[in-house]
Design a protein around this nucleic acid. Structure first.
Lengths: 331, 331
DNA sequence: TAAATTGCTGTAAACGATTACAAGAACGTT
DNA sequence: AACGTTCTTGTAATCGTTTACAGCAATTTA
């Protein structure tokens, strides 16, 4: 790879001059500029982002980080895609890591990102009191939370109105006549899970029903836990007539448990899932879901991050997006 | 962030000594070492990967790149996951980018990776004659191809026996009595697509059947093209009795087209898809697929890359993994 | 006891960029 | 003609590391 040195030598100027024509900042007389540009072209010069990042401070690295809990979850894939598109449009590269909902991995990758001097980080915190994230923020690193929020720290945040989504989903089930509605939740340390659960409880309460502990099961957002917990619920002496499952992967797992028991949906058991899936339409039966605008969450997070990088002092803002109940045939 | 300078000052030694205890390489007497280690701890020192990378050459950055065509495709998500796990196990970070099957984006990200001085790159080339990839390889950058191969360049490669997978899938359909088997292929420039198509044609030929052009449609690997092309095939005067779809997303699209026309699977139309899906079991009906070991492809690619980084001169190897036909109820 | 060897540590030069400052040329002003 | 500007370019410091080399003290050898 050609370096500034080599270009300078070929163009018979100093490296400072070459750097100036590259950064289009200072004045360089036309003749010199042309000579430099020719050398640049002839050597196919590409600046080293590494060297550049070492020298420049704050927001000029054109590199941002995204840490997602599970790359195999279509919700996060869509979110990543939205962020990626926004980043690419601004010529930022994305350092994408997968924490696997694992605090050690998150810590490792946060460390990597700091050590890589990224301009900023986007992530859904692993819990509402994610100390690792708080520590990174304390160093002055721009951080934007997506999907999930932090309880202690004030950050830029792009979230979805989870409470409302859950409330509507349960109300929908209630309207269909269901009274025993099972809940399969995920990790209770995360804010989205709590909001959704609150929406579930309030919707039941508004219908004059209490939420019954025996109909609630807590999992870990993974497909397998959805399958297991749905199984437990279905095998009860008096099983629920409907299931509300708090994320997409657990919903798929619940469906597997249902099919395994040869139950009919929605006659024997109705199902509503949180998060849409690109193939929800082709599931058996087409799945009723609360759709989250994941792509927009990612896109707006990147935009917020860009603004925070440009202007570190600005007060944090929260963008709240609306989910949408899509009634298909599982209810 | 504390730098070597600050640590050195606090421990009252030179930066060289600090660097030495960090790299455990040279001899440092116990007392000095202890003092340095204390300073390191007190200042919570973390080395700058950027500075380190600038100084060191070749394979010490502990950063590798992965460029995937579509992060929303579960096959690539699984592959990425396999690679990520292997990378994490060796304490490598992953720079993950999404090319969107777009040559411009791929070029952009290849440039970023070179400029970031990654230790190596893993990717499925966008076509068999992907010039951008060849150019990067020519600079000496370690490159491992996954899934898809390059026709001109010799690289390390982890691939799946696509020919065999397709051959078995079509044979399976033939065994079920189908004679008019439609094919929905993806981008014909990519090696996997060609191999799969060759498997399709050969399986038909082995049964004494020619492949008929009117039953073949070419798409772009995306869900929407699967839906459209399946629609075309289904709306023919004499439609095929079975569909073989060359990737997962197009299969999901094809399923949508089938459901839209209220056809029964497999009675009216049988379907086999290439690539498994975590929820293939819960589709309507459970989908017969050719399963690829995507996780292993990713994992082995990372291992190959590591070996190539360590030993640049070694001859390229090809690892060929076997796909597996999983007969469910769509055939 | 002087010389040679060994062991530990410090000095300084990279890596490849950016940028403050200096310097020289060209120009205008008085 | 002398001086002050302005414009363009070069010199050198810097970012945070690694590492070749030098230097010094302690130890071994003659």
């Amino acid at each position: 790879m050609a370096s500034l040195q080599e270009v300078a030598r070929r163009a018979k100027v100093s490296i400072a001059t070459v750097s100036r024509v590259l950064n289009k900042s200072d004045k360089v007389v036309a003749g010199t500029r042309a000579a430099v540009e020719r050398a640049l072209r002839e050597l196919d010069y590409r600046p080293s982002r590494v060297a550049r990042r070492l020298r420049k401070k704050d927001g000029r690295a054109h590199l941002v980080g995204l840490i997602i809990p599970d790359i195999q979850n279509p919700f996060y894939a869509e979110l990543a895609r939205g962020m990626e598109d926004a980043a690419y449009a601004s010529e930022y590269a994305l350092l994408l890591c997968n924490s696997d909902e694992n605090i050690e991995k998150e810590r490792f990758y946060l460390g990597v990102m700091q050590a890589e001097s990224v301009d900023g980080i986007v992530l859904p915190p692993l819990s509402e009191t994610d100390a690792a994230v708080e520590e990174v923020m304390a160093t002055g690193m721009p951080v934007v939370c997506v999907d999930r929020s932090l309880s202690r720290a004030r950050t830029d945040l792009v979230e979805v109105d989870n409470y409302r989504g859950a409330y509507e989903a349960v109300t929908h089930l209630l309207d269909k006549g269901h009274r025993r509605i099972g809940l399969i939740e995920g990790r209770s340390q995360v804010s989205t899970n709590r909001e959704r659960r609150r929406g579930y409880a309030d919707a039941l309460a508004a219908a004059g029903l209490g939420s019954r502990e025996e109909l609630i099961r807590a999992g870990d957002f993974r497909q397998e836990s959805g399958r297991l917990l749905a199984g437990e619920l279905l095998d009860m002496k008096r099983p629920p007539t409907a299931l509300f499952v708090l994320n997409n992967l657990m919903t798929v797992g619940a469906l597997a448990a249902i099919h395994q028991r040869q139950l009919r949906v929605p006659q024997d058991i109705a199902v509503v899932g949180f998060d849409d899936l690109p193939w929800a339409e082709s599931l058996d039966p087409p799945l009723t879901v609360v759709r989250q605008p994941a792509y927009d969450v990612g896109r707006q997070a990147m935009e917020l991050l860009l603004r925070r990088i440009m202007e570190a002092g600005r007060p944090p803002v929260t963008v709240r997006l609306l989910p949408q109940l899509i009634a298909r045939r599982s209810t």
